[in-house]
């Protein structure tokens, strides 16, 4: 038993997760069907059922630090097949949100988080996703994070191929009222 994690605070994490994911963590009886069906489980450091177990044990911080929450592809298989109707996919979302808010994102997985952030930032500014801009934005953010040139130019060869198929749109369509987007984002991020 790890006594380094004071129970009340860690339990608070579990309560926040339950509220965000609209689910009951203690319904889980650890059958492992979530992990069994997860397309990413083999690569994960902490499999889905173990993340839930950590939360049940009041060791939520270990879950927030996990790489696996960023490896999740949100395919919803876990929640669909759960015999106890635990919203495991929702728990993954909630863990990501909390992990980011508390600055605990696993360094190895920061690229995924940067992508999601770049995605949201892109739609905050344009209303709709502008793919080319997202790629550039994400590549730069990723480069700033890990300084890997190989990743920076990895998909550059794709551009002419996309262009040949008239799939490369240099100027994305934007919505007219973009100010409302910024207000929607501000209100949604506001936790008070």
């Amino acid at each position: 038993m790890n006594t380094a994690n004071p129970l009340p605070q860690a339990c608070a994490t579990a309560r926040v997760i339950e509220a965000l994911a609209h689910t009951h963590l203690y319904d889980c009886y650890q059958c492992g069907k979530c992990t069994a069906g997860c397309p990413m489980a083999a690569q994960m450091d902490i499999a889905p059922n173990r993340l839930i177990r950590l939360l049940q044990l009041g060791r939520g911080r270990e879950a927030l630090d996990a790489q696996s929450i960023w490896q999740c592809v949100s395919c919803q298989t876990c929640a669909t097949r759960c015999p106890k109707s635990v919203n495991c996919a929702g728990i993954m979302d909630a863990l990501r949100q909390l992990s980011m808010e508390e600055g605990r994102v696993s360094p190895a997985q920061r690229r995924v988080m940067l992508f999601q952030k770049a995605f949201l930032d892109n739609i905050r500014r344009n209303g709709r996703l502008h793919e080319l801009e997202l790629i550039v934005q994400f590549k730069l953010a990723g480069f700033m994070h890990d300084r890997r040139f190989s990743l920076l130019f990895k998909d550059a060869t794709l551009a002419p191929k996309l262009n040949k198929r008239k799939k490369l749109h240099l100027r994305g369509k934007k919505v007219r009222d973009r100010a409302v987007l910024r207000r929607i984002f501000a209100r949604s991020m506001d936790h008070s």
Binding site: S74, Q97, F115, Q116, K117, L120, G127, R128, L129, V175
Partner: peptide
């Protein structure tokens, strides 16, 4: 004036 649905990024982060 439709806008992006937020996709995975929104439910992953907020």
């Amino acid at each position: 004036e439709w806008i992006c649905c937020g996709a995975t990024a929104a439910h992953a982060l907020n």
